[in-house]
Design a binder for these strands. Structure first.
Lengths: 346, 346
DNA sequence: GCCTCGTCTGAAAACGGTTTCAGAAATTGT
DNA sequence: ACAATTTCTGAAACCGTTTTCAGACGAGGC
């Protein structure tokens, strides 16, 4: 009934527990054969609790994300998991629901149960990374920075550049009235994507009506409402850059409800690709990034950091993004013929 | 540097470790005030390793799924997580990549680290549930059964009824040449959805050409290939029931590539709803089910089972599904006028 | 003021491993 | 065959908690 202990194995094999322990850890031992048989027969597995009590290591890492149902974070989890699958670490997963207080709770709880943590903080000014640093838990931040606290290993993507190239794609199609549905501004992706958007317009000296920046909060409903507001404007935009995947769904739903046509009436660029993007009508132009790679890289950095005893100085990696051109962008209705012709050639 | 132990707290508060332990577990203690202060000041947190060594409980549950990037399983994880968030259990997550051998590995590894397990087995005849039963780990199966072994608590959905109502919806639109892209037949959902499909056709005495059942393996690529084969048939179907979400994406991509139009040339019903389903053109008719609820319910059953010391006999819960009618189904091209008119009224 | 009773306390023994230490056995060299 | 090594072994300490077991202390009854 009760799981067998190392003592049972020792007894079965007629040796001391020390010998069994040594054999299991790889030492040469005379009774190796008998011990292996006893282990197999009793189906013995060492107790992780006892092992980690002695060693101080838990053999586990935590992975804390704002929302596992977001395909991006699901991909990150998968990428991270594919790395640990080899190296014998198991993964604790926790959702924070984009809430700082919930994040503080789960971090506090996980703190003692893991050897390291992969964290996508809910906001930039939240205290979790600092807490982890204080507790001496190796930590790698994913997708979001913690500028208030010290340096952390971080795996980001080029949010600024991605947003900028999205907007530039729209500009090159002849658009000038380009709006954005922005994410939460106190998160790294939200902030930089908004800045990239602004920078692109700035570079082309295009004035930006304040109502062209709509807060969508990275939520589908926010994207829906924002798009509704944009389309209700007396002088609506001819193109919209939507700053993440879930808001894009909401925005497209609003567009569908209103009856606006893409790309004839409105051009749209989203952020983050999805298998569905390709089969929408029209297929959606998006900024794509290596999602699983981002999770895998973060996990590799975490494992390395856990080995190197936190001596090495912290690294900040920025992954490249790329524009996937599909058919959701075209020239604006009132565009000069040049741009219209140019777009038609694509 | 090193985390403080209960001994440090005892020293700081000027009492014995026993007293500290008692206070933390809720006993009335004279030095309660001083101890609390010492705990707060040292930021003491009991070591889970030591606690579980003593108690035999780990305070963790495992959640083993075939593919976390499948939105269904992501939703299940979220639902399960929302339950444990209250009750103080943390979640180990593992992916099996739909592989029996990988599943055996992770189950074997997790076995000793958790008090209970939520498992969506990769196939129906795999040995993991039996192994868990042998080891005395409370287990609840999600979405997939283990008929070979004994009874387990299981949370299923009405796959048979869902498939059947999907096909009946197509029949009521006047279709008679209805194909299916089936999942892996040795999994519960794959098996029952196929049977439900067959049952519906049988009930209407419709003969079924063998090539109308295409194996898609629950993968996007399989859905793509299957749809290509169906459309290349000399006498192709006028409607297709696709047995899961990922295959549906592939199938729709094939349809788009070929240039077939929905629902004019082909009607389609998918299994599992998705935010994107509504904004496809045309919006996709699907069988929907309570995904997060399925995860939450499974977790509730697991926690209950963990309390009741596995005495109670096992329960098998089947959740209802429902058809969401959208615009991807219409009468077949060659349908009799009656059906065509009837469909138009909808 | 003394005895009894109940409450609170600290020492010590687990829990199941790993690791140090010293001694036993096996090996080598002569 | 004996000493000097080397390899292997078991006893015991330890990791940080919880829990049992007595004993100390204070309160209440006579």
């Amino acid at each position: 009934m009760k799981p067998p202990t190392i003592f049972d194995v020792a007894q079965e094999a007629g040796v001391s527990v020390s010998t069994v322990s040594r054999h299991l850890r790889g030492d040469r031992v005379r009774a190796a054969e008998r011990i292996s048989r006893a282990v197999a027969q009793l189906r013995y597995r060492p107790s992780p609790a006892a092992q980690s009590l002695k060693s101080g290591k838990t053999g586990a890492v935590a992975l804390v994300v704002p929302d596992i149902t977001n395909p991006f974070f699901a991909a990150v989890v998968r990428g991270a998991e594919s790395i640990t699958a080899q190296g014998g670490h198991t993964i604790f997963l926790a959702n924070t629901d984009e809430s700082d207080t919930r994040e503080a709770e789960v971090v506090e709880d996980l703190l003692t149960r893991v050897d390291g943590m992969l964290l996508a903080p809910a906001s930039e000014d939240n205290p979790s990374p600092q807490r982890l640093a204080d507790a001496g838990v190796p930590t790698v931040l994913i997708d979001r920075e913690a500028p208030s606290t010290g340096r952390f290993d971080t795996v980001l993507i080029d949010n600024h550049g991605g947003a900028r190239s999205a907007v530039e794609h729209l500009l090159s199609n002849g658009h000038e009235r380009i709006a954005t549905i922005a994410g939460t501004v106190d998160s790294t992706p939200g902030r930089f994507r908004l800045e990239g958007y602004r920078a692109a317009l700035d570079a082309h000296s295009i004035e930006l009506p304040p109502e062209f920046v709509q807060p969508g909060g990275f939520k589908e409903h926010g994207g829906y409402q924002s798009m509704l507001r944009l389309l209700a404007l007396p002088d609506p935009p001819t193109a919209v850059f939507v700053a993440n995947n879930t808001m894009t769904i909401g925005a497209l739903r609003a567009i569908k409800d209103i009856g606006v046509r893409i790309p004839d009436d409105l051009s749209v660029v989203g952020f983050d690709d999805h298998p569905f993007s390709e089969i929408l009508d029209p297929p959606l132009t998006v900024i794509d990034r290596p999602m699983e790679e981002q999770g895998a890289l973060a996990m590799r950095m975490l494992l390395s950091r856990m080995r190197n005893d936190s001596s090495r100085e912290s690294r900040r990696v920025v992954l490249d993004v790329r524009l996937i051109e599909r058919a959701s962008c075209g020239p604006p209705r009132s565009a000069p013929m040049g741009a219209r012709r140019q777009a038609a050639r694509i």
